[in-house]
Amino acid sequence: MKFMRSSDAIILAILVVAMVFIGLVNPAFWQMSNLFSLLKENVVIGIMALGVLLVMISGGIDVSFTAFAVAGMYLTVRVMVALDYNGLVLPFMSAILIGGLLGLMNAGIIHRFKMIPLIVTLGTASVVRGLVLGLVGTSNVNINKMPDALVAFGKADLVTLERANGSTYGLTAMIAIYLGLALALHLVLKYTMIGRSVYAYGADPEAAKRVGFSTGRTMMFVYVTAGALAGFSGLLHSSMIWLANPRDFVGLELDVIAAVVLGGASIFGGRGTVLGTVLGVFILVMIQNSLILMGIDTTWQRIVVGAMLIAAVTVTALRDRRALV
């Protein structure tokens, strides 16, 4: 019954309450097609959130991951179009590699120069976005040019259902990839030495060093993994929307960070769980997408996200303060 007292249980309770409430305001929320599309919305933000969670547990903050996602996605797709290549494995490996290498750059600068991660990642984000847009191009790769293999991959469904009028809708298979990655990260964080070192470093870098963790290797693991997840999520996103837009993801940083904080991770490091983050992402996506269902004008969306972030950080700040006493 340890679970019942954890923050994850509280987040789950909030999620259930919110779902019941939205369902009461508009029963259309419970339609299978709406739930499926909500789950689909979770995939890309969720994979990015896993990376952000890792950085936050280590006591840092990352605002460069959306730029890395764009780099991984756009460079890969442009090369595929140029070479007329139509595969799946190599492109995803390339996106992961691009993201990972850019993450390595973050890790190097943050560790070597002992500089605040926020400012470093603001800088690297601007560098990467500037280079991609300035040197590679600003035009979309549209559906007619998108490699078929990517489009077909993004279309794959786990379950397909039929509406009353005969049209079909399905649950995207990408949700399985997302949950698989989440499970893998959960296991790594919980049961491996490198995973425990992230918590140790986030809680107290000096103590982690004295116990014998190599801080350089921990930082590298954190930022390379976050970058790789970002690169992967970028290409996955483009395969799901059949479009590669180099201006994508602008301003998405905040939503993802908000989701991770909503999931109970502490910006001071040392706290945060994969389950909490997955739930946090679901809450955020659900509330954003349900504003229309609840009859609220979409211009209010940013206020709602901002207010949710403030509420979540207030609660975690109060929790962490109590934990200090």
Partner: peptide, 27 residues
């Protein structure tokens, strides 16, 4: 208020309020 009374880190507090302010602009 968020930073000094509620003891929220400035990064997250201002990230959140920044969204609220932009949201108010939109509204």
């Amino acid at each position: 208020f968020l930073i000094s009374v509620l003891k929220i880190t400035p990064i997250l507090a201002t990230l959140g309020t920044g969204q609220v302010f932009i949201g108010l602009c939109l509204v």
